[in-house]
Design a protein around this nucleic acid. Structure first.
Lengths: 223, 223, 223, 223
DNA sequence: AATGAATGAGCTTTCATTCAT
DNA sequence: GATGAATGAAAGCTCATTCAT
């Protein structure tokens, strides 16, 4: 009831405009996940949002612009998710790593709908420079933070022989690759098993920080 | 002149037909890589093959059918590639693993054009059951072989604590995830570095078979 | 300050309304000249007037109505222009003729912007009876006056063989035809040369009133 | 019956293509005359030609292109008409002038439908450089020929005081201006009267060649 | 077997018009 | 009075598909 009331509350024009844009972006994500990128029409998006046909061009000028802003929204949401997880994490490098990896498999970003849309954009990326840029930026920011964490871990270990670049790109690859399973084998996919797989591979490389079961070793215990 | 004659040689109808179909599939892959899945039209495909407009419907009945057969071709080519590598590999499990992983990064299958097309199909997969089935089958066959190899490795190690499912899905995820880099960061991508990354992660889990530098340990040494 | 005050002065509702309507008609003329009739949208008109989108329908009910009133304004302005010229002219027929012809080439009505709009309406006239009526009325009124003047000139000459209808329609045709040059060859067009051309053609028909150089012969000289 | 048979005759593909293009241009002229430039849609054009909706984009790529080629056709037809008339005319300058002027009022080019289309294009000319160019070129070619004729007439007269530029631009203006009457006052317009009007104005300037009734004076008679 | 003109459904986009604020 | 978000009809255009040649 309170919710319904909010809906009826008079809002400022600016607020309404932003609301409409978000409605349309949500509807776009929904449609791409349901129908695919190639089969998503503006009519689908408008219908999905319960609005009229001309609405998208009114708020986004063109279909292209809507798609770009949808990808931007997705990238922002992804970044916000891991940044928030990082904010809540403990100070140690291994705890921050755990937070980052865990964030990638949270239901908010790691669900079949969202991942279907990510792959849709990756699929179009090569032929659309704008998408490519947005996707590359997403990765860059993530990997910069990951690189800092890995540098700390290597120093702490110490793991003098461990190649940091390989470590960083391998972690990213593992999560991205496991995301594909959400898409292709949705029934078999298990969020916890996926996280365990990442920990398994990391435990071999960071034995001073992780047990083979993914357990985090407290610092002093190593001596 | 001999060449020209070959061109003019009357071939069997079936052979010509198969030739045309392959021409069109090649042109489809080329176009998807260049223009993206959504922007690939039958006119593009026909033009790319230097053939007339109506040709695709003539040989494949519909655009959908062309796309399905293109994906099928890609999956066959991928399978043939790793199977051939397996055939040439030594008998030991670790050598067969090395062959499989190496195959995934061979230029024949791991190049920006082909990978762009794979992602294009993955992007559409969720909304098209036929694509999903083909993609899932590709993975199933690969992972069945991989599972056999990993079982051997675990027994050989022995690595009694090593989770085989995690190992198998992690290996697949690593290669798929590294493929994304070919698409998104083509300049930074380095085939050899990618392979080393996989070996790095495996060396932590299979210390009896692999050195941290990716070197394969000979069997006798273990005793 | 006085000016600013005038701007801020509360005017009567009717005055404001009339002001807005004129602003919109001016903007319409401006847009038709710039973009053409077919490409002039109400958004263009509103933007050009610095007003909001819905404003035209508010003041004119429909786009059609705005266009009709714009044409009406143009016709009124044209008529006012030659009538004012006539008012200032001497009493003799030849002086009134000179005033009329001169009026047609005054900068107020004979400039590329206004003429572009006239031709735009003439171009649509056949298919829109309302425009046709307004255009025909403009000509009728002008030609009625012209007919009176020509009758006097023929009597004065006297030029018993001169066909009055041909004379009148020829004069109109000459000015309209020369207007087309403003549109099509704006660089070559020369207001004074155009007027001389009209006089040149008239001098052949009205030798008792005009020298071949366009000079007006005083009355007494004829006797 | 013979006609029907012709229709059924197998023609070459190239011929069919040209036929279709002409059909569509004819239908475009018809529609602009009937509905006006602004209200002519591709659906109207296709329907008018009894063909399907997509046909115009197939043969002309875009609506713009169709309109440009329609104007081009009109300009070509106009030029062909006066050139053919010139070809049939006698050798003397006055006969060639008579042929040119007569051509401008022939039913083939001087009818309400065609003239409505000319004015439609003139109306859009200012805002579309391509139209402007085509219209200017039409005039240029015509006036170049007219200039040659007038030079001869002036020399023959001789009319040493006669301004050739004024004469040429005046003749063009007279015919263009009289065309407007076809549009605005179709009932009152009389092809013969219009021609007489041009002759009337010319007779005053070329007394050695023309009688006031438009009669051409034979050469010898001048002496 | 192959061509390419033709079709027509469906797309994105534009825009006159409406109306709550 | 005036605004501008929203509507929805209609436009131009694309393109898979058909089919006579």
């Amino acid at each position: 009831m309170a919710l319904a009331q909010v809906k009826e509350l008079p809002r400022s024009r600016a607020a309404t405009k932003e609301l409409r844009r978000q409605q349309l972006i949500d509807s776009t994500i929904h449609s791409i996940a349901k129908r695919g990128f190639a089969d998503t029409t503006l009519a689908d998006v408008a219908d999905g949002a319960g609005l009229s046909r001309g609405i998208v061009n009114f708020h986004f000028q063109s279909k292209d612009q809507l798609l770009v802003e949808t990808l931007q929204f997705l990238a922002d949401e992804y970044r916000d998710n891991w940044q928030k997880a990082l904010g809540k994490a403990g100070d140690s490098a291994i705890e921050r790593l755990a937070a980052l990896i865990s964030a990638d498999f949270e239901a908010a970003v790691c669900n079949r709908k969202k991942i279907a849309v990510w792959f849709a954009f990756w699929g179009e990326a090569k032929s659309r420079p704008t998408y490519l840029k947005l996707c590359a930026d997403r990765d860059l920011e993530y990997e910069a933070v990951m690189r800092g964490i890995c540098a700390e871990l290597i120093a702490e270990g110490p793991y003098p022989a461990l190649d940091m670049d390989g470590l960083v790109s391998g972690i990213s690859a593992l999560t991205d690759g496991l995301w594909l399973d959400v898409l292709v084998e949705p029934k078999a996919f298990d969020r916890e098993a996926a996280k365990r797989t990442v920990w398994l591979f990391l435990s071999g490389l960071l034995p001073r920080h992780l047990g083979p079961d993914g357990s985090i070793k407290t610092r002093g215990a190593g001596s």
